[in-house]
Design a protein around this nucleic acid. Structure first.
Length: 571
RNA sequence: GACCCCAUCGUCUAGUUGGCCUAGGACACUGGCCUUUCACGCCGGCGACACGGGUUCGAAUCCCGUUGGGGUCGCCA
């Protein structure tokens, strides 16, 4: 399923009144000349009064915040210091934060991590925690993803006060239902000379990027369409030409903003591109949607991952262009793989459901995420959500990127298991994989394969375990005429194909696998044996694809990936 | 490559107003105790302030530089 095109998607009819009001109010904020009514540049460094008490007091940050020359080198007042306007009213603004996942795949531990910190802060401040679905990417949209993300977040114990399913006064909470809002705001920027339509083809842009890279320049849009006058642009639009809307980034100066954890960050505008705000399919990009929604939803603090630091200037510029008060920026460190790179599914299981499926207790995962880049200050590592909320303080965040250490997670889970009463342990087991629901899926697959009930355990052992071993089958793990290297690569590609699926049915898996064989010229029976050994650790199993669904998507994925690595390492 | 961020044991971290730090805790690893076994538990061990300059009576803590790691540079978020 794809998202409906905005033209036919929920437009203004679905907008609640307050948005109309907000847009109306915005019209007034913009002066006749379209200039944003913002505080003049060059003010003293701003702080949210809110953060005063809890202000990070690290000397380094203090230095940065106090450095009195944020705009010193900047030439013109009008291009100079894009510093967030002073928030005189922020003190009284109730805290509202959000997590804004994109439904393009499995519920990511990083989403859980950021959600947890948003939740902890919101509750500590007596504020609200909002869930917003950023479903503006039609190409990567996956129908089953959104529900999975919500389920996973709830499973973790991170509950939202406003969101798509629970409602709230600031909806709709799906960006796909807010396209009319973005379109309007985009037009405002065009009218006020802050944005323009661009008709360049994807090919031209790619070429631009490539030549820039070849010449070792920073890839940047060359402003080709910037000078097209309004009348002509309108004409081309009417003529049915595809276009995007780009924001106009000032030619000189730099953008300065305060990050709660890092102090002052300054980035020169020549690092910035004329960012696309509205895509040719009519959907907004993250940058536009995020700013517009955060403003309309009255978000006070943007707590997100560090990867966003370098695009924050674009957002600051947008707030300025609209004449809005920007939220406070708080960029959390990135979760890491063992090699310190940003956590990724290629190197680490990243789906929350994987951890659920191998039998990690939700509280343990939550607690574990809570010690990533964070501590209570004493030597206490085991703490519940309530305790984290009550004592939460951004000063306790450390910025070195924390490695997601499976060993420590398991240890922590052990602590939680030990704390369970016998009865609760039984319940946990039943809820995990020893309940009727799961057994009902298992039974049909093994009934023909057991002579006594006591055969059940050995017949299904791989359905109740995490990783499996492949060493015993080392000499069987091959496909004629295919090198180990290509085999590994192929397996990984297949995994990608599985990931593109909406859902995880045996039929889809089989169809995908067969199509893959076709493409590769591999014999199905060869590939299927590999998949069998990979997903079960055996050469004999119940029907392969049914088995894979019962073993579960996450564990199967992990096992197949391990298999691929194993094969890659063979002689 | 350009820009930005970061820097205490292999890993998560305490240390944040510089002295109480011959750097504390946890995971992992490891020796022992307990025990019919295994596990748990308990006691012990290994193990870090990246480097170089400053500032200071005194620096893991402040400043500068170097090095290292990471992130970003998309009509993805």
């Amino acid at each position: 399923m794809r998202l409906p095109h905005p033209d036919i998607a929920g437009g203004s009819a679905e907008l609640v009144d307050r948005h109309a009001a907000a847009i109306g109010a915005l019209d007034q904020t913009l002066g006749h000349d379209g200039r944003a009514a913002v505080a003049p540049p060059g003010l003293a460094v701003n702080h949210f009064p809110l953060q005063g008490a809890g202000e990070r007091s690290g000397a380094k940050n203090q230095r940065k915040q106090q450095s009195g020359r944020p705009c010193a080198h900047l030439p013109q007042a009008n291009t100079a210091c894009y510093k967030p306007s002073t928030m005189s009213s922020a003190a009284s603004r109730p805290v509202r934060v959000r997590v804004a996942p994109s439904p393009t795949g499995d519920p990511h531990v990083g989403t859980g991590y950021i959600a947890l910190f948003n939740y902890a802060f919101a509750h500590n401040m007596g504020g609200k925690f909002i869930l917003r679905i950023e479903d503006t990417d039609q190409a990567r949209y996956r129908a089953d993803s959104e529900a999975a993300i919500m389920q996973a977040l709830r499973w973790l114990g991170v509950e939202w006060d406003e969101g798509p399913d629970v409602g709230g006064d600031y909806g709709p909470y799906h960006q796909s239902k807010r396209t009319e809002i973005y379109r309007k705001h985009c037009n405002m920027l065009i009218e006020s000379g802050k944005a323009y339509r661009c008709f360049c083809s994807a090919e031209r842009l790619t070429e631009l990027r490539e030549t820039a890279r070849a010449e070792k320049r920073n890839p940047k849009y060359d402003g080709h369409c910037k000078s097209i006058d309004a009348a002509q642009a309108a004409k081309r639009v009417e003529g049915g030409e595809d276009f995007v809307v780009r924001m106009i980034v000032p030619q000189e100066g730099s953008v300065v903003f305060q990050d709660r954890l890092r102090g002052q960050v300054e980035i020169s505008v020549d690092q910035l591109d004329d960012q696309v705000l509205l895509k040719s399919d009519g959907f907004p990009t993250y940058h536009l949607a995020n700013v517009v929604d955060d403003h309309l939803m009255e978000i006070t603090h943007v707590i997100r991952a560090e990867e966003w630091v370098s695009s924050t200037p674009k957002h600051v510029l947008l707030y300025e262009a609209f004449g809005w008060q920007a939220p406070e920026w708080i960029h959390m460190p990135l979760l890491r793989n063992t090699d310190k790179s940003k956590i990724s599914k290629r190197k680490n299981p990243v789906s929350i459901n994987y951890y659920r499926d191998i039998g990690i207790l939700p509280d343990a995962l939550r607690n574990f995420l809570g010690i990533m880049g964070y501590s209570l200050g004493d030597d206490k590592e085991i703490f519940d959500l309530k305790e984290m909320v009550e004592t939460f303080n951004f000063e306790r965040v450390s910025l070195g990127g924390p490695v997601f250490d499976q060993d420590k997670l398991r240890w922590m889970n052990e602590q939680y298991i030990h704390k369970l009463s016998h009865e609760d342990l039984v319940d946990a087991l039943i809820e995990w994989r020893y309940g009727r629901e799961h057994l009902r899926k298992v039974a049909p697959l093994i009934r023909e394969r057991i002579k006594t009930l006591s055969d059940f355990a050995s017949a299904t052992e791989f359905m109740f375990s995490g990783d499996v071993e492949y060493t015993a089958f080392a000499d069987k793990l091959k496909i004629p005429e295919v090198s180990n290297k290509d085999l590994k690569k192929g397996l990984l590609e297949l995994l990608e194909d599985y990931d593109q699926l909406d859902g995880y049915s045996a039929e889809d898996l089989e169809a995908t696998s067969r199509a893959f064989c076709e493409k590769k010229g591999w014999k199905a029976k060869h590939l299927f044996m590999l998949l069998r050994v990979g997903s079960t650790g055996r050469m004999a199993s119940p029907p392969l694809f049914e088995t894979m669904t019962v073993v579960g998507k996450e564990i199967t994925r992990r096992r197949l990936r391990e298999l691929a690595d194993f094969i890659g390492k063979m002689k």
